[in-house]
Simulated assay, not measured.
Amino acid sequence: MSNPIADPGHGHSPAAWTAVIIMLVAFAVGTAAFYLDVPWLVYTAVAFIIVGLIVGFVMTKIGYGVNGPKYQPKEH
Rank of each mutant, 00 (worst) to 15 (best):
K70M: 09
V51H: 13
M59A: 14
G30D: 02
M23W: 10
P69E: 11
N67A: 12
V42P: 01
A16K: 09
A33G: 02
G56K: 09
P4F: 04
A6Q: 15
G11F: 05
L41R: 03
P39E: 03
P73A: 05
Y64F: 14
I49G: 13
G30C: 03
L53A: 13
Q72Y: 03
F48G: 05
A47H: 00
I22Y: 09
P39G: 01
V29T: 08
N3S: 15
I62G: 14
E75H: 09
W40D: 05
S13E: 07
A33E: 00
G30H: 01
G63C: 12
G65E: 05
T60A: 15
Y43E: 06
M23K: 13
I21R: 15
A47I: 03
H76C: 06
I22G: 06
G63D: 10
I49V: 06
T44P: 00
N67M: 09
V25F: 05
P73G: 03
P14R: 03
A15F: 10
F27A: 10
D37E: 15
L41Q: 03
A47S: 01
Y71S: 07
V55Q: 12
F27Y: 04
Y35L: 00
Q72I: 01
A33R: 02
G9H: 08
F27Q: 08
A45N: 05
F27V: 10
A19N: 12
F27M: 06
V42T: 05
